[in-house]
Design a protein around this nucleic acid. Sequence first.
DNA 1: CTTATCTCGTATATTCCCGTACGAGATAGG
DNA 2: CCTATCTCGTACGGGAATATACGAGATAAG
Lengths: 197, 197
Amino acid sequence: MTSTRPRRRADAERSIARITAAARDLLSRDPDATIDAIAEAAGVGRMTLYGHFKTRADLVEAALVAVLEAGEATLAAVDLGGDAREALSRLLASSWELVAESAALLASAQGVLPAGRIRELHGGAGDRVADLVRRGRDQGAFRTDLPVEWLVNVVQYVLHGAAEEHRAGRIATADAARIVDATVQSVLAAPSHNPHT
Amino acid sequence: MTSTRPRRRADAERSIARITAAARDLLSRDPDATIDAIAEAAGVGRMTLYGHFKTRADLVEAALVAVLEAGEATLAAVDLGGDAREALSRLLASSWELVAESAALLASAQGVLPAGRIRELHGGAGDRVADLVRRGRDQGAFRTDLPVEWLVNVVQYVLHGAAEEHRAGRIATADAARIVDATVQSVLAAPSHNPHT
DNA sequence: CTTATCTCGTATATTCCCGTACGAGATAGG
DNA sequence: CCTATCTCGTACGGGAATATACGAGATAAG
């Protein structure tokens, strides 16, 4: 997969890496970030960027692919077996920022990339989280009164919110993981019993 | 406040109302909605719009003010006394669409309006929800292990997500209220006891 | 009815961003 | 050292959106 084109110089490789990194950074914060701004943030000229990415859509797609691949890798590295609650904690601890970033980039891609292409790229990522949720339901650890798709989406939104608050400096890096975990766990938890209503 | 300028014709008043309504509608769905599109949706010519709102920022601010005022009115009409959980349910039932809309418009205003102006306008709205959360904590109904500001924000994000899912047709109007209530309640609820970990 | 106000079209200026063209200079790689 | 590749500046054209200018016609309000 990395050797699609055998002939490419090392500095070009480096430029591409810096550009996609900058694109991930800027686009996840502002979906309308300028190509100029991305090139500048990457430390390359605008024309260099155009040399590697013909169009804006190409750049967005590259950034999206990069973050989704990173997400897949992380997901694959995390042990999702055993108790669903603990698996979820492990997953969140190691990847909540990444997931939040992917959600933001997904929003960026909306309207720029054809819908089919997005679903194709995003494909597996969400499904595996959904699987974890379903497994948790089978174990009796997670709630069953709300649709799985909704729960997965809520997790996305919570992570997105946490990332934003964190960037704004309203929650400290040290606290972020704990806050995210506590919030998500209580959304997914099966109601042990309802003393009221 | 409604009589800032005593001399204005009735049809102008009507035009302004239609324009702000259209602006609320379009901007809450697409932050980059064109002035043309808003004028057309309002059923007025583009030049008529410019006659009332000098600049795009003026229009955005007007829409934001309108929805925040509506939110304040709704908030004031809801009985926030008694059991905090029930008060929260009442609040969500009667205003979740409105709050979601205000959040979307707030995102629209980001970057168009100066940050100080936004905080100034938004001011009271969030505070009163925060008060409700604090009251629930004093009653022992709501959790105390997470910051109040974070909890308020999570409510916002959940509502925002619900609105989006609803628009996309992935959750039915009839179910929306129940889903929102169940989700938010479980985020805010004090952990009755932790059978695990 | 008369006037001040409002509506709204056309035309135009401005700004911003995307994307292309051309070409000179730097550098990796053999 | 030599060449293919990469970097990157300037310049240009196209398109979209904001905002202004001018002016003719409709209408509310006294």
